[in-house]
Structure formats: structure tokens, C-alpha cells
């Protein structure tokens, strides 16, 4: 009986065109259709908010005219990839009516199964996210270049006799003659192997005492460079602890003494 009721229930009415447009225009993402000559066939109101150009004035215009010239190559590439089927995601810059640029993320696909064109796409303004990412990148880049230019070797090592390195700054090469990469992790070259044999035990003991007391250490010892030259260095650092006090590693800076 229940099955019969459900079967007899009238099918929901198809939404009218104006209802569909109302739905599309309420969205905070651009919804767009593009024809085989890359002209805009249809676009919702969010387009105006994103680009500053009126929808009516943009219809029939070539979509690529709104793209930043440097991103046209990417656009072509994405279309080629799209020809292989599925959908594609692309980031590009849209030229705003004010002359400013807006970073956008677009999901692009063919509208129909039987033909490549027209294309349908959703497009959202990701300018704030891109700007934040640029600030983060600049901040990281600045710190990284500062650390790498210092005439010293900044390090984070494990607390073992080899002092196996988890991180070494580029100053390592200037100090030891070995590249930073060659010292990382389980490499056959280690700081331990470079410390003069007569100093190695003393270095180990003093660091262990400092770690035990959760104090800093300040050591002077001899290092053998890659070229065989022996130099005197100063190593100042401290332990890296978990909240329970467990020693996770050792961080410090090594400088050459005159």
C-alpha cells in the first residue's frame, strides 16, 4: 500500500528558468558556460562581483579576454588536457575592471557527453588565500635566506655520538667544506666524525651534562674540514625537550674561532 502511495505521488514540478537563474545568482561562485570560440554563453551575477564587469556586457565576449596574458598558455594546456576527458582544475588571474588582478580557481568540464563544447565551469575568487600564501612564503623565504647566509652552521641534531643532523644551514659548507645535504640524517659524513678524536668524548660529556640540567652548552673544540684542514670552532646550543622532559634533540650554532 505504501509503495502504491509513493508511486502515485505526483512528481515534483520542474524548476522554471527564472527559478534556476535565481538559484545560480544566489551563489557566491561564478557559474559560466563557454562556447567553441571561447565566448561567454551564460554567466551568473557573481561574475560582476568578481570581475567588476556587468553580465550583459560580458556575454558573447571572449572569456580569454578577461584572462591575464601570462595565463593564456596555462589555459591552452588545460583545454588540451580536458580533451582527454573528465574535468580540470586551473588557477589563473582575471583582469578586474579596475585594472587590478583577481586570483581565481576554476573547475572546468564539457557540458555535454557527446561534444567537447560548450564548456561549463565554476570559478571562485581565491585572491585573499593567494595573498596570505604569498606573505607566508615571503616570510619563510626571508628567514631561510637569512639563516643560509650566516657565516655559521645552525643545526638541529639527534643526541647520539655521531650527532646525526636533522637540519643544517647552508653555512655548513663554508665551515666544514661539506654541503648541508651531505650531512643530513643517516649520511656517512657526520659532525661526530669531523670532531677531533681527542675532543669527541669531552664534547659528548659536556652536552649530556647540559641536557641533564636543561641548560645551554658553550663548547670549544677542533673540527677537521673536508679538505683535511683542522679548525677551532665554538658550539653554542641547547637541548630540545618534550613536555615530559624527554630529550628530543640538540639545537645550536657552530662558528669558526679565529
Amino acid at each position: 500500500m505504501e509503495i502504491l502511495k509513493r508511486a502515485l505521488k505526483p512528481a515534483p514540478a520542474q524548476p522554471t528558468e527564472s527559478q534556476l537563474w535565481q538559484l545560480l545568482n544566489s551563489l557566491n561562485d561564478v557559474v559560466i558556460a563557454i562556447d567553441d570560440r571561447h565566448r561567454i554563453l551564460a554567466v551568473n551575477q557573481c561574475w560582476e562581483k568578481t570581475t567588476g564587469f556587468a553580465v550583459e556586457a560580458s556575454l558573447e565576449q571572449c572569456f580569454t579576454d578577461f584572462l591575464h596574458p601570462e595565463d593564456l598558455g596555462n589555459w591552452q594546456q588545460v583545454l588540451e588536457q580536458l580533451a582527454e576527458g573528465g574535468s580540470q582544475l586551473i588557477w589563473f588571474r582575471l583582469l578586474h575592471a579596475s585594472g587590478e588582478i583577481r586570483w581565481c580557481e576554476m573547475r572546468l568540464q564539457s557540458m555535454r557527453d557527446d561534444s567537447f563544447y560548450p564548456l561549463s565551469a565554476t570559478l571562485c575568487d581565491i585572491t585573499p588565500q593567494v595573498r596570505n600564501e604569498q606573505v607566508r612564503t615571503a616570510s619563510h623565504r626571508s628567514l631561510q635566506s637569512l639563516v643560509d647566509r650566516l657565516p655559521a652552521m645552525l643545526y638541529r641534531s639527534r643526541n647520539n655520538h655521531s650527532w646525526t643532523m636533522e637540519y643544517v644551514s647552508s653555512g655548513c659548507e663554508l665551515l666544514t667544506g661539506h654541503s648541508a645535504e651531505s650531512l643530513l640524517n643517516q649520511s656517512h659524513i657526520s659532525l661526530g666524525s669531523m670532531i677531533h678524536p681527542d675532543d669527541a668524548d669531552n664534547v659528548w660529556e659536556q652536552v649530556q651534562v647540559a641536557l641533564q640540567n636543561q641548560d645551554t652548552f658553550d663548547l670549544h673544540y677542533r673540527l677537521t674540514k673536508a679538505c683535511g684542514e683542522e679548525i677551532r670552532v665554538r658550539d653554542k646550543g641547547r637541548g630540545l625537550y618534550s613536555s615530559s622532559g624527554m630529550v628530543l634533540g640538540v639545537e645550536g650554532v657552530i662558528l669558526q674561532c679565529n
Binding site: 591575464h68 596574458p69 595573498r131 604569498q134 606573505v135 615571503a138 626571508s142
Partner: peptide, 16 residues
């Protein structure tokens, strides 16, 4: 210049 500072540099090159 990016390597010398923490400034965010942006290039908007519209020359083809």
C-alpha cells in the same frame, strides 16, 4: 631582491 627581504613582490606582466 626577494632573497634580501621579507617583502612580498608581485609581478603583473601584461606584455606579450
Amino acid at each position: 631582491f626577494e632573497q634580501q627581504s621579507a617583502i612580498v613582490f608581485e609581478l603583473d606582466n601584461r606584455l606579450q
